[in-house]
Amino acid sequence: MLFLLLSIVLIISAILVISAQNPVHSVFFLVLVFLTSAFSLFLLEIEFVSLLFVLVYVGAIAVLFLFVVMMLDIKVTKQEKDFMIYLPMGSFLGLIFFLEIFLTLQENFVPFLPLSGRELYINWLNCIDSLTNIKVLGQLLYTYYFPFFLIAGIVLLVAMVGAIVLTLNFTQKAKHQFVFRQILREKKNSIYLIK
C-alpha cells in the first residue's frame, strides 16, 4: 500500500522533472525522485542501499546538477520545440534500458540464495537476517565479484580525468604567493646595483 503510494509520487515527480519550466525546480523534483526511491528501497529492507541513495544521489550528484544549472544561468527553457527532436532518440534509449532490466530480472544476482530447486524447504529468511545487507555486500563484492569492482574503479578514473580535461581552462594564470620565498628574502639577495 505504502509502496504503491510511493511509486505514484515517484512517477509524478519524475514527470515534473522533465516538464518543469525552471531548470532549478526540475533539479529539486529530481531530488524528490531520489528521496522517494530511497524510501521505497528502505521498504524493501535494504537499508544500506537506501542510505547510499541519499548519500550519493541526493548528497553528491544532485548537488552537481544544481551547480551546473545555476552556472548555466538559464531563466526559463522553451521546450515545446526540443521535445519532438529528442523524442525518438530518448524513447529508443528508454526501450533499450527497459529491455536490459527485463533481461537482468531473469538472472539471479545473489549466488548463495537460489530461489528454486531443492533448497525450497530451508528457511532462508533466518540465514538472511543473521547477516546485515551491508555485510553480505562486503563479502561478495570484493571476492566473488571483484572484476566488476575493479572495472568500477577504472570507470571512476576515466570520469575524473574526463571531467578535468573538459573543464580546466589551461590559459588562466594568476600570480601566486610563495610564502617561503617571501621569508627567504633578505637584504643581500634583493638589493643589487644596476650598472
Binding site: V56, F67, I134, Y142, L156, M160, A163
Partner: peptide
C-alpha cells in the same frame, strides 16, 4: 563544478570502502 565532480568520485570511493 570541478569540485562537485571530484567530490562525487571520492564520495563513491568512500562508499565502496564501507562494506569493505
Amino acid at each position: 563544478y570541478l569540485v562537485a565532480i571530484l567530490f562525487i568520485i571520492f564520495d563513491l570511493e568512500a562508499v565502496f570502502f564501507f562494506p569493505w
